[in-house]
Design a protein around this nucleic acid. Structure first.
Lengths: 206, 206
DNA sequence: TTGACAAACTAACACTTGTTAGCTACAATA
DNA sequence: TATTGTAGCTAACAAGTGTTAGTTTGTCAA
């Protein structure tokens, strides 16, 4: 660990930004959450905006690594396709549940998503990162996956982008829904299972 | 029109809140957008929070009316089912496009959606309204619709809630995507058309 | 031991925040 | 005409904003 205070500041600031947004959080709020005085923050960051940008930069990297671990258990894209190819409906359900719960419950991933959701309209950078991770990134990855699996004859022949849209967007919507209902996550998982089941019934080449 | 200034204040405040969020907008910002001084705002609202709450209350009503007009061209739910029953794929595409473009481009609807997206985590009320309109409301309406159409033999027999999820969530995701790409709306509409086409191919009982 | 550096601190700055008090101008009503 | 109410204004308030300057403290290398 290069510098622990700097990380602590970013984490605490992320927590605050995720709830109240950038403008709703003061330097004194952040400092008090860290356990230091506001002026001391300037030993680590040049400005409030710098904290915000550093959070996005740093967390993007961490998040990218984390999400690759979730989506790609091991190895490159080829191995993934190979793994997904012989996949049963049940294991697909399990993967979707893991992905959903990570987005929803993981302390860091969920806060990061909240912050970007709030700040996407005010900060261009936040807007881009939000798009890259939660919209285009997910869709692109799954499009590639389905593209290969269609070639392999695992799924029926159809537009893989639309297929990715059908697969991912319910997850995306359910995240927004159960963000405010953390206690009802069982219900969410049931719906997700129903979604995957129907998805497989439709697209699987049997 | 009972009081024009009051409406102007709400509209201008909505515009500002939609871009910068509640905390990012000052009373002087709002006043200056309206063309009066900050102190004069207190002739119409008791506080900043009162402006925010009034926007949500008033706009909710307007929005409900507007969205009913979009989703339900005329009459009650029975007539709608009747109308949708004999529906072709092309008219379904048209309906989806209209709905999508209203959410995306209509000045008032789009600002309202942005404001709620930003404030859903800070304000409980905003969170509830966001859920009611953009998640549960849409899903519930379409679930009811599909439920009936399955009974009528228009669609194959399956869980109508999952069906509504499959139908609506791509629209929901594409809204988030093309919020920042207003110029590429043609691309969005193509994708939407592809979505509906695939949806019909899957669920229509032929 | 000395010097340098990092990282905390206090105190203060200029400015902005939501809000209030008190005033003026005008319209409608009695 | 006199009165009342609406809706704007200026000036000011106490509190909070991001940020800077200057100081103190502890740690490590020379």
């Amino acid at each position: 660990m290069d510098n622990n205070t700097k990380d602590t500041i970013m984490c605490q600031a992320l927590t605050l930004f995720a709830n109240r947004g950038y403008e709703g959080v003061s330097m004194r709020d952040i400092a008090s959450a860290v356990g230091i005085k506001a002026a001391s923050l300037y030993n680590h960051f040049s400005s409030k905006e710098d904290i915000f940008n550093s959070i996005i930069d740093e967390m993007s990297k961490r998040y990218e690594r984390a999400i690759i671990k979730i989506q790609v258990p091991s190895g490159g894209i080829d191995e993934v396709v190979e793994q997904y190819m012989a996949i049963t409906e049940d294991t697909l359900v399990m993967i979707v549940k893991d992905l959903f719960l990570y987005f929803l419950k993981d302390d860091f991933a969920s806060k990061f998503r909240h912050m970007l959701t709030i700040e996407q309209f005010r900060s261009t950078q936040a807007g881009h990162v939000f798009q890259d991770f939660f919209i285009n990134g997910a869709l692109k990855f799954q499009k590639g996956l389905f593209e290969n699996m269609i070639k392999m004859g695992e799924f029926i022949d159809c537009d893989p982008y639309i297929m990715a849209l059908h697969f991912y967007s319910p997850i995306f919507l359910l995240l927004s829904k159960y963000d405010h209902l953390h206690n009802k996550e069982d219900e969410a998982l049931d719906i997700l299972a129903g979604h995957v089941k129907q998805f497989c019934a439709i697209y699987k080449d049997t």
